[in-house]
């Protein structure tokens, strides 16, 4: 592999990784607070992409209106799902909540099949994202750096919210102990709702960027990214936001590099990515950034 090819693969790996990272944050936030693996999260990614698609195609909105609007609407859908399918079950055993999450996932996928149709749709990239950039021998399209920069900005906003604002402080407190936080006069329902909103907004952004990178959307498009992002979250240490980002980048780069260095293994890249995951979890069960938590009594 030449140096140019290496740079090209690195750029592709990082842009794929930043999408995994965006989606992984939603998993990790919800898990950190509710100890719930929100299996419908991947389908929120799909909804985000479809809302943006219909905004552009059906309502003729320019992308700079349609995309933010899609993010806001999808965040709203995330809140509705939390309100309808998770909050009523919160006091029940974890397994109920988990089953409900799987149910929501199936529901969204099948609703997608019925409403949007099972056939893939072409997602138009805004023109400025389609400019070829030449790096030596290699060429990437302008959407690659745009995805990376957008993701970086969203990460910065998220880190600011979590670490520097009151609601962020409440979220962190909730992840330690919901009941005690409630006793301190914090409206836990609202904070949980806010976490879902934030997670879904990032998922929608991830979905739109995913559709820009792979301009074909279908009702099952969220399944694979959702699964990979979940793995990225576990890799980074589930419950830890910085860990989710790191896990996402790591997974994206490793996936691309395995195929780039060993083209013969190209059909088995998931297998190799997951072998790495298993090894990492064997030697570091809490993930890269995860802390060993004392069991709560």
């Amino acid at each position: 592999m030449t140096f140019d090819q290496f740079i090209q693969n690195l750029a592709n790996g990082i842009s794929l990784g930043s999408l995994y990272a965006l989606i992984a944050i939603g998993y990790t936030m919800v898990y950190g607070i509710l100890r719930l693996i929100n299996f419908a999260h991947g389908d929120i990614v799909m909804l985000g992409a479809y809302v943006a698609f219909y905004g552009v195609v059906m309502f003729m909105l320019p992308w700079w209106v349609a995309f933010p609007l899609a993010i806001i609407l999808t965040a709203g859908i995330g809140v509705i799902i939390e309100r309808a399918a998770y909050r009523p079950l919160r006091s029940f055993p974890r397994i109920n909540l988990f089953t409900s999450a799987v149910a929501v996932s199936f529901l969204l996928e099948n609703l997608g099949n019925v409403i949007f149709g099972g056939r893939p749709k072409a997602f138009e990239r805004p023109a400025f994202m389609d400019i070829a950039l030449q790096i030596g021998e290699a060429s990437v399209l302008s959407y690659t750096p745009i995805i990376i920069v957008t993701a970086a900005i969203l990460f910065a906003i998220l880190i600011y919210i979590v670490n520097r604002t009151k609601v962020g402080m409440a979220m962190r407190a909730l992840s330690k102990d919901i009941e005690t936080t409630g006793l301190m006069g914090i409206n836990t329902d609202r904070i949980i709702m806010f976490s879902f909103m934030l997670g879904s907004a990032l998922a929608a952004a991830g979905g739109i960027l995913w559709a820009i990178k792979f301009p074909q959307i279908n009702p099952l498009m969220g399944v694979m990214p959702g699964l990979k992002a979940f793995i990225a979250a576990v890799l980074g240490g589930i419950g830890n936001i910085t860990g989710a980002m790191l896990g996402g980048f790591l997974l994206g780069v490793v996936e691309i590099m395995i195929v780039a260095f060993f083209p013969d293994l190209s059909g088995y890249r998931d297998a190799f990515a997951y072998v790495i995951l298993i090894l990492l979890l064997l030697f570091r069960p809490t993930g890269i950034m995860g802390e060993v938590q004392a069991e709560k009594v």
Binding site: N9, A260, R269
Partner: peptide, 30 residues
């Protein structure tokens, strides 16, 4: 070179075969 169901990123595979005169890709339309 290979890919599998659900793959959407072919850049790594394509990086290795860019110099070919033709690509034969007997897969599904998507």
């Amino acid at each position: 070179v290979n890919y599998q169901d659900g793959d959407q990123d072919f850049t790594a595979q394509l990086g290795a075969i860019k110099d070919a005169e033709a690509i034969y890709a007997p897969g599904y339309f998507g």
